[in-house]
Write a protein that binds this DNA or RNA. Sequence first.
DNA 1: TGTCCGATTGGT
DNA 2: CCAATCGGACAG
Length: 213
Amino acid sequence: MVRINIRWILSMSRNNKLARAFYTRSNVLVVARELLGKLLVVPTADGTRVSGIIVETEAYRGPRDRASHAYGGRRTKRTETMYGLGGTAYVYFVYGMYNQFNVVTNVPETPHAILVRGLEPVEGLEWMRKRRPGQPDSNLSNGPGKLCMALGIDRRLDRADLLGNEVWIEEGSRVPARQIATGPRIGIDYAEEWIDKPWRFWIQGNRFVSRKG
DNA sequence: TGTCCGATTGGT
DNA sequence: CCAATCGGACAG
């Protein structure tokens, strides 16, 4: 006898995972902009959905972008992930304590990536609060390191396929073009003439954007 | 092996 | 404004 679990049916009917073609497009700036409003989901071990709407992103254009880890075609154990297929997670560790979640775009051998910098909590708030002890809800996921803590993202998810079941992105809410703001990327003072490229995108006025600007 | 420093955060 | 904290990148 086959047992059908209503929760499972609901979860499947909600499966709006973005298709591979969304990620493999060649213009990383376009993908970074379109990621705004999408829902990033990382289920817990017991299947609870922990998710949030992406409200801030930054595009890193690979070999020709001094701010990118792949600048100059740099290819190491860490950066190898970015040379993979669009729709792969690139998770790295910085400052001795924080993880950063990125989305690899474009085709293999073209190391483009998008850093997710801000998330508006949607599901699994209890988990986020437990992982961000003592923090008010407004400070759960308004920064690249913070959102990784809130969703439980660490390097174990590096190279995870975003069409798989460990971490993925779904259709979320539509963001009117008028609400999208752009500006220079953060924390890349070493990037010389690339410092001022307006490759940071965010939803104007959203509380979970890491910084005003 | 040694040194330098980071796609940040939280507390002064 | 600054310390925390450690792995990655690269020089030697």
